[in-house]
């Protein structure tokens, strides 16, 4: 599992990243690119249902490089 993670990180971030300027983030700021979508409450419902019906806990995703315009 550890090796899959390292490989995934290398594929994700190694050699294929371009420097995106702050004024080039129009697409990244769109609702369609948001982690919870346009409606965070819906995401909360979904997570709650899976937490109630399955044994897995933890692992909510964090994403903050999308817009960076705060």
């Amino acid at each position: 599992m550890r090796y899959i993670t390292i490989l995934a990180a290398a594929l994700l971030f190694g050699g294929c990243v371009s420097e995106v300027q702050p004024w080039e983030k129009a697409t990244l700021a769109k609702d369609g690119m948001k982690e919870g979508g346009a409606n965070p409450l819906v995401k909360k419902y979904e997570e709650h249902i899976y937490y109630s019906k399955e044994a897995t806990k933890g692992g909510g995703s964090i994403g903050a490089g999308g817009c960076g315009c705060n």
Binding site: F13, V17, S18, V20, K25, L28, M33, S61, I62, G65
Partner: peptide, 24 residues
């Protein structure tokens, strides 16, 4: 308790990726 550590990277003007580890 639950702990999470994550890294987020803007790949290009149209994509973003993240990776995280968690422990509880």
């Amino acid at each position: 308790y639950q702990l999470q550590l994550s890294f987020s990277q803007v790949i290009d003007t149209t994509s973003v990726a993240d990776i995280g580890v968690f422990y509880g």
